[in-house]
């Protein structure tokens, strides 16, 4: 069953108390951050800490990603050398702008994996789009490698790059959000939305998440564990949706066994798109397709 990525919780890589609790808040994914959350004079300490945390802490079923520093900085390569051998679920690469730099990143990762006799198909890459150039190239970036299984948007950096004001309604980056979703959907991978920065505005978060869901994001980045439940709540299908989807999948399986491709429920024809949607609803409700 495909794992949900409704929430991706940022945890500063230099905060041991928060790192050790990463797996307990119920986020679908956590992002151990070596980049923006860590001051320049703490980069080495954070890298060592995250390395040790990956070795020793149980994050249970939570997907674990590490955001490394860009390879243009003095820290990016060292980050990869320390983190790749530990094979977290994913590496997030910040400010991805071109397929060339993505190719370079993958080459370095795979060289390190070869050195440690590690496979190339276990750890995935999340390309983070944070500049106007990245937005323009996002389709090619999403398409470039099977290792890229999610595209994420960094709203704060993107507004800075576009020289526009960051607003609660995100109007300035609306086009970018939609382009990123479209590129991800076209390549059948996840799109993860930017953070909602006002942690005390639960209603604002709910509205922003509803919009993100509506335009197609798989989930949102989260900067405080208190935001997780609101986002999960928005992404949770209603009881009626779950019941309907369950029935569709059940009937589909039954008809498939009987060799029937297209069938109807309550007079409505069930075709492939409806079946796909029903499967997605069950995934969000954590119901295993195979158990039906």
């Amino acid at each position: 069953m495909k794992k949900n990525r409704r929430t991706m919780l940022y945890i500063p890589g230099n905060n041991p108390a928060m790192l050790q609790q990463g797996g307990v808040y119920g986020a679908d994914s956590i992002l151990l951050d070596l980049e923006d959350a860590v001051a320049l004079n703490q980069k080495d300490a954070a890298r060592i800490l995250v390395r040790n945390v990956l070795k020793s802490i149980n994050f249970y079923t939570t997907e674990v990603c590490v955001r490394i520093n860009h390879l243009d900085t003095p820290f990016g390569l060292e980050d990869l050398e320390e983190i790749v051998p530990l094979q977290p679920d994913a590496i997030r690469y910040p400010k991805t702008e071109t397929v060339e730099e993505l190719a370079n990143l993958i080459k370095i990762i795979e060289d390190i994996e070869d050195k440690h006799n590690l496979p190339h198909d276990k750890m995935t890459i999340h390309a983070m789009i944070e500049t106007a150039l990245g937005v323009q190239n996002v389709f090619e970036i999403a398409k470039f490698s099977k290792r890229v299984d999610a595209i994420t948007i960094g709203g704060q950096d993107l507004t800075a790059d576009m020289n526009i004001k960051s607003t609660k309604d995100g109007s300035g980056i609306d086009l970018a959000r939609k382009m990123i979703v479209m590129a991800a959907k076209a390549n059948k991978i996840d799109a993860i939305d930017t953070v909602f920065v006002d942690i005390n505005d639960e209603e604002g978060l709910r509205i922003d998440t509803e919009y993100a869901k509506q335009i197609g994001f798989s989930g949102k980045a989260v900067i405080n564990p208190r935001q997780i439940d609101v986002i999960h709540d928005v992404y949770m299908p209603t009881d009626e949706e779950i019941r309907k989807s369950y029935r569709i999948v059940k009937e589909f399986k039954k008809n498939k066994l009987a060799g029937i491709g297209v069938f109807a429920i309550d007079g409505k024809m069930i075709d492939a798109p409806i079946m796909t949607r029903a499967t997605q609803v069950l995934e969000l409700a954590n119901i295993d397709f195979n158990s039906i």
Partner: peptide, 11 residues
């Protein structure tokens, strides 16, 4: 409480 940990346990 606003403590994420306390809220998580409470939930």
């Amino acid at each position: 409480t606003k403590s994420p940990m306390d809220l998580r346990i409470a939930k």
